[in-house]
Simulated scan of single mutants.
Amino acid sequence: MAAQTITARDWQARVSGSGEPAVVNFGAERCGFCKALEPLYSRLADHYAGRMRFLKMTADDPQNQKIVQNAGIQGTPTLKFYCRGREVGEHVGYAIEPVLRKKIDAVLEEMESCLANSTPVSK
């Protein structure tokens, strides 16, 4: 399953209020490293399908600025990991596939406890 693009309008349903673990790739239109990360992010989305939702948000889109600011995004690409709307990890910058798989695997190990012991964040 390919990574899906979201906007601020989708945030509540797809991240904050969701019971599914998610990773959001905050990227920018003119970011070379963001463009380089795209095919890798798509492969990871396919590899982890059913275990984690892979989402993308354009950080330089004015409609997304409140989410970007609340997430503390200072550079792109930035991957933020969420469990029931709570941030549980991040990776800033480009990385090769083994590095990102290791990070995702570590987050998924912690995810079971989060999913069992918390409820989705409300608006």
Rank of each mutant, 00 (worst) to 15 (best):
M1G: 08
M1Q: 04
A2G: 05
A2N: 11
T5H: 05
T5Q: 05
I6M: 01
I6L: 02
D10G: 02
W11L: 03
W11C: 04
W11V: 06
Q12S: 08
Q12I: 05
A13V: 04
R14Q: 12
V15S: 00
S18A: 09
G19T: 07
G19R: 06
G19D: 11
E20A: 13
E20R: 14
P21E: 03
P21Y: 07
A22P: 01
V23K: 00
V23D: 00
V24Y: 00
N25T: 04
G27M: 12
A28F: 10
E29R: 15
E29H: 13
C31I: 06
C31G: 09
G32Q: 09
G32N: 09
F33E: 14
C34F: 03
C34H: 02
K35A: 14
A36H: 05
L37W: 03
E38N: 12
L40P: 13
L40Q: 15
Y41P: 13
Y41M: 12
Y41T: 11
Y41D: 11
R43W: 04
R43A: 15
L44G: 11
L44W: 04
D46C: 06
H47V: 13
A49F: 11
G50R: 12
G50N: 12
M52V: 15
R53L: 14
F54L: 12
M57L: 15
A59W: 10
D60I: 09
D60A: 12
D61S: 14
D61A: 15
P62T: 05
N64E: 07
N64A: 10
Q65T: 14
Q65L: 14
Q65R: 15
K66P: 04
K66N: 11
V68H: 08
V68M: 09
Q69R: 13
Q69I: 14
N70S: 14
A71P: 08
I73H: 06
Q74H: 09
Q74A: 12
Q74E: 10
Q74T: 11
G75F: 01
T76N: 03
P77T: 01
T78N: 07
T78C: 09
K80L: 14
F81E: 03
Y82W: 10
C83R: 00
R84L: 12
R86E: 04
E87T: 03
E87N: 06
G89R: 00
E90S: 10
V92N: 01
Y94N: 03
A95D: 00
I96M: 02
I96Q: 06
E97W: 01
P98H: 01
P98K: 01
V99T: 11
L100R: 02
K102N: 08
K102P: 01
K103Q: 13
K103S: 09
I104E: 00
D105L: 07
V107H: 00
E109F: 06
E109I: 09
M111V: 15
M111W: 01
S113D: 13
N117D: 10
N117G: 12
S118I: 08
S118F: 08
T119V: 11
P120G: 06
V121N: 06
